[in-house]
C-alpha cells in the first residue's frame, strides 16, 4: 500500500483539482458574505435595545455551541421536512455563512471595543453623529486591528468547506471520497487530498503570520 502513487496521481489529479476549484470558490464566497453580514451582527450585539440584542445573542450562541457539521446537516436534511428544500451548494453556502458570520461578528465586536473612548469623544466633539463616527472613524480602525484574526478565519473556512461533503457538494473532499470508493485507492487519494489542502493552507497561514507581524510591529496597516 503506497501513500504516494504516481499513476493514481496522474489519473485523478485533474478531477481532484476541479473539486478544489469549488472548494476555493465556496471559501471565498462564504468569507465575503460573512465579512459583510458580520458588521450588522456586531452592531446589533452592542445594541442597548433588548428587542434587537436578545435574538442576536441567541443566534450567536446557537452557532457557537452546536457543531458546524450538525448545522449543515440540519439545513440540508432537516429543513426539507419544513418545506425548505435547498440544492447542496446553496445549503452549503448558507450553512457556512450563518456559522461564520456569528464568529466574525464577535471578532468585529472585540475590535470595536478596542478603540479608545477618546476617538468617540473627538468624533462627537466635531459634530459627528454616532453613525457617521462609526462609519468613518471607529469601524475603519477596528477592521485594521482585527485583520490578522480575519485572515485566520479564512483558513478555517477553507478547511471547513470539507464538511459540505456530507451534503454532496462536489468540492475536494467529496470528489476524493467518490474516487477512492470507486477505485479502492483510498491511501493514495486521501494522501493526495491532504497534500492539496496543505498546499493551499500553508502559504495562507504564512501570509496571516505576516499580517500579524506587520500590525503588531507598529507598521500600521493603512
Amino acid at each position: 500500500m503506497q501513500l504516494i502513487d504516481l499513476e493514481v496521481t496522474r489519473q485523478y489529479l485533474g478531477v481532484l483539482l476541479q473539486g478544489l476549484r469549488l472548494t476555493v470558490l465556496l471559501a471565498i464566497i462564504v468569507l465575503l458574505l460573512s465579512l459583510a453580514l458580520a458588521i450588522p451582527v456586531a452592531v446589533a450585539r452592542m445594541s442597548r435595545n433588548p428587542l434587537v440584542r436578545i435574538p442576536i445573542d441567541a443566534y450567536v450562541e446557537l452557532m457557537r455551541t452546536t457543531p458546524l457539521i450538525l448545522q449543515l446537516i440540519y439545513i440540508y436534511y432537516v429543513l426539507p421536512g419544513f418545506g425548505i428544500k435547498l440544492d447542496p451548494l446553496t445549503a452549503g453556502i448558507i450553512g457556512l455563512t450563518l456559522h461564520y458570520t456569528a464568529y466574525i461578528g464577535e471578532v468585529y465586536r472585540s475590535g470595536i471595543d478596542a478603540i479608545p473612548r477618546g476617538q468617540h469623544h473627538a468624533a462627537a466633539a466635531l459634530g459627528m453623529t454616532s453613525l457617521l463616527a462609526f462609519r468613518r472613524i471607529i469601524l475603519p480602525q477596528a477592521l485594521r486591528i482585527v485583520t490578522p484574526a480575519l485572515g485566520n478565519y479564512f483558513i478555517t473556512i477553507f478547511k471547513d468547506t470539507a464538511l459540505t461533503s456530507v451534503m454532496t457538494v462536489q468540492e475536494l473532499m467529496f470528489t476524493g471520497e467518490i474516487i477512492s470508493a470507486r477505485t479502492y485507492q483510498y491511501f493514495p487519494i486521501y494522501t493526495l487530498i491532504l497534500l492539496i489542502y496543505f498546499a493551499i493552507g500553508y502559504p495562507s497561514a504564512q501570509f496571516v503570520r505576516y499580517l500579524e507581524r506587520a500590525t503588531s510591529r507598529g507598521e500600521k496597516l493603512r
Partner: peptide, 24 residues
C-alpha cells in the same frame, strides 16, 4: 434629538489632553 445636538457641537471646538487624532 441627536442630530440637533450634533449640530450645536459643530459650533464648539474641543482640544483634548490626549489629542485624540484619528490614527488611520
Amino acid at each position: 434629538g441627536a442630530k440637533r445636538i450634533a449640530r450645536v457641537r459643530t459650533r464648539l471646538g474641543m482640544v483634548f489632553q490626549e489629542f485624540n487624532l484619528f490614527p488611520h
